[in-house]
Computed example of a mutant assay.
Amino acid sequence: MPYTGEVTRGGPPAVRDLGALTITKVSVGPMDNNAYLLRSGDEQLLIDAANDAGTLIALAGDAGLATVVTTHRHADHWQALEEVVAATGAESLAHIEDAAEIPLVNRDLRDGEHITVGPATLEVIHLVGHTPGSIALLYQDPDGPPHLFTGDSLFPGGVGNTRKNKANFESLITDVEQKLFNRLPDKTWFYPGHGNDSTLGAERPHLPEWRARGW
């Protein structure tokens, strides 16, 4: 089946093979959070152990997990974290500004830092506004366009919820514009914390509209 990025809780995962990196997307929990299992070489990394620990542990399988990265502090993104780490021995990573609100963080992350999964590398991009320590993870595919895991900072149709806080919205929309849209090409595929994927090119024309509406 061609990859579409459309998943439902309890349904089959969506798998995308980039050659050097394989991405497996599943939906978990009552809030339909997306979790992403990345495999490169003999290592695996999980983005957001959000819920349904049994599903995520089974997804990792015998290969296990080297790392779990939590994109931000909101509890719907780490409900399964402790159980997954206990079962796999994975190292748990989160941005330093959110780490204190997330159980079982072994290593703090900072903007511009790199995380490895086998021979593949992910760049940490700090996006302030949805939470103080929200991050996106960027994979620069050597054989194709970039791939970006945005947590709850960027979705098809807008940036993440800033709860009508004008300062937080201004921070987030500016970070998203400058660190993502101004840097990366239209073909960049992004994978959000909930719902379907999109590309920066599909969303770029709507940036002025998002800023004008204030959310």
Rank of each mutant, 00 (worst) to 15 (best):
L138N: 04
Y139R: 07
Q44E: 06
L59F: 05
T116A: 14
Q140N: 08
K166G: 07
P208H: 03
V128S: 05
A14M: 04
V117E: 13
D52F: 03
P156H: 05
T116C: 04
G89W: 10
T116I: 00
G160I: 07
T116R: 14
H77Q: 06
L138V: 07
R107S: 13
D62A: 11
R73A: 09
H194V: 09
S27Y: 00
K187G: 09
E177P: 07
V159Y: 08
T121D: 08
I135D: 10
T22K: 13
S134H: 13
T67D: 05
V159F: 05
I47A: 02
I57G: 04
T174L: 09
I173H: 09
G11N: 08
R204V: 08
W189N: 01
T188W: 06
K179L: 13
G5D: 07
D48K: 07
R211Q: 14
A86Q: 14
A58E: 15
S92A: 15
H114C: 03
Q178E: 15
H206I: 00
L109V: 05
I135L: 12
K25G: 01
G151I: 02
V159H: 08
L137I: 01
D48V: 00
A50D: 11
T88C: 04
F169Y: 15
Y3P: 06
A63G: 15
L104M: 09
I173Q: 11
H77K: 03
Y3R: 04
V159T: 15
K164W: 14
T88D: 10
E209M: 13
V124Q: 11
E83A: 14
D186S: 10
G10W: 12
R107E: 12
R16G: 02
A66R: 09
L65V: 04
A212G: 10
T174F: 02
Y139H: 15
E113L: 10
R16K: 11
V84D: 04
E203W: 02
S198C: 00
Q178L: 09
Q178K: 12
G11P: 00
L154E: 03
L21V: 05
E83D: 14
R110I: 02
D175Q: 08
D108H: 14
D197G: 02
H114R: 12
V7D: 11
L38S: 08
D98H: 01
H194C: 04
T4Y: 03
L148H: 06
P156M: 03
D76E: 09
V69C: 12
A202E: 14
L18N: 06
N182F: 00
A202N: 13
L59H: 02
G61R: 11
T70N: 04
P12L: 07
L127T: 01
E82N: 12
P185V: 07
H95N: 14
F169R: 12
H194R: 09
A212L: 08
Q79P: 01
